[in-house]
Design a protein around this nucleic acid. Structure first.
Length: 361
DNA sequence: GACGCGTGGGT
DNA sequence: TACCCAAGCGT
């Protein structure tokens, strides 16, 4: 694979025109107030696969609760997870806290300044490492995200599939050759800003683009055809029966395993089923609640259906109201919680749709 | 290299 | 509606 820029590409002019535009047009974002490495770090983790407008309120709350590496390192995992509730990709915040503890203990609370060291931190991959090093420390490292791959695909008419890891490596080599002396952080941010505000996935605003003159795809009229991106598989359907087991104004909840999907979050107990008859579902719920949680229940009525789609799964949930009959020896992951106290627990969004059904009861 | 991992907004 | 997309990382 070739990692060299086309001869006719004017590196200096491109960087200058892009930076002039960025200096004049950049958005006021809360993580751009200063270049504190911890603030940059938290923002980059939150922004992974997540939109700016979604992140803003979470960022403000998170920085208020955990303003320093030390504060995050010393916080309880429940408090940290609660502050992330609703943002998605929860392993991000578990890794972030583990890394904060690592920075506190091993680096005296100072975020490392070399690619080798910072890459050892949990949750810090090639993009995040480059972003922190360039923005906080002005190191000439590339920070290649989806925006940058789209911009460069068009700018240089690259037809490589950006879904493949090898393409990111290639674009990192190319970006490295364009980063201007002394302004690595702004340059990387400018590329992303351009991708977000001008060089959008669909209907790019080429007529107002500050680097229109440098763009090969635009010159050839193929900007709408790029980048080349492989198609994702559709989510796999899963059928689930949800049991709302009520006992004196309390409802049973269960903590998910510490690994895998929605790790460590609370949920109402669920049973996976094939699509079957109503009677079979009732029977299965009764049997499974007994086997897994040691409680005898009487399934009352079906009080609702909820559908929730993940990137790779589609949960089709049918919700059953159940009476607790007997059984006090719950496994350590399960408990009965008063309805008013449910807000103290972290639930996935899929279960937020179930919660209102309890209040109606 | 392929897959698992959330959620919300846009067209 | 049914897609697509969004400042990726770990395994």
């Amino acid at each position: 694979m070739r990692y060299t820029l086309p001869e006719e590409f004017h590196v200096f002019g491109f960087a200058k025109d892009l930076l002039d535009w960025y200096d004049a047009q950049k958005r006021d974002l809360p993580w751009r107030i200063n270049r504190d490495p911890y603030r940059v770090w938290v923002s980059e983790i939150m922004l992974q696969q997540t939109r700016v407008d979604t992140v803003k309120p979470y960022y403000a709350n998170f920085m208020e609760k955990f303003p320093t590496v030390q504060a995050l390192a010393e916080a309880s995992e429940e408090d940290v997870l609660k502050a992330w509730e609703g943002l998605g990709y929860y392993s991000r915040v578990r890794n972030l806290q583990a890394a904060a503890r690592e920075v506190q203990e091993r680096y005296g609370g100072v975020v490392p300044k070399t690619p080798e060291e910072i890459r050892t931190l949990k949750g810090v991959g090639p993009y995040t490492a480059g972003a922190i090093l360039s923005i906080a420390y002005e190191k000439p490292e590339p920070a290649v995200d989806g925006n940058v791959m789209r911009v460069f695909s068009r700018l240089l008419y690259l037809t490589d599939d950006i879904a493949k890891p090898a393409t990111r490596i290639k674009i990192e080599h190319l970006v490295r050759q364009v980063i201007p002396e002394g302004r690595a952080g702004d340059f990387n941010q400018a590329l992303m800003e351009l991708g977000a505000m001008v060089c959008s996935p669909r209907s790019p605003q080429c007529l107002t683009c500050p680097v229109f003159d440098y763009c090969i795809a635009r010159r050839e009229g193929v900007q709408e055809e790029l980048p080349n991106k492989g198609k994702a598989k559709p989510p796999r359907p899963v059928h689930l029966q949800v049991a709302l087991i009520v006992r004196d104004g309390a409802v049973m909840i269960n903590k998910r395993p510490e690994q895998g999907l929605l790790a460590g979050m609370w949920e109402f107990p669920m049973v996976e089923t094939d699509v079957e008859s109503e009677a079979a579902k009732r029977e299965l719920v009764t049997q499974q609640m007994n086997e897994r949680f040691g409680v005898e229940v009487e399934v009352q009525e079906r009080i609702g259906e909820v559908q929730h789609t993940f990137s790779h799964l589609q949960w089709n949930m049918q919700v059953w109201l159940c009476d607790w009959i007997s059984g006090d020896e719950l496994p350590p992951t399960a408990r009965f919680a008063a309805v008013e106290e449910l807000d103290d627990y972290t639930f996935p969004v899929a279960h937020h749709k179930i919660r209102p059904m309890l209040d109606k009861k």
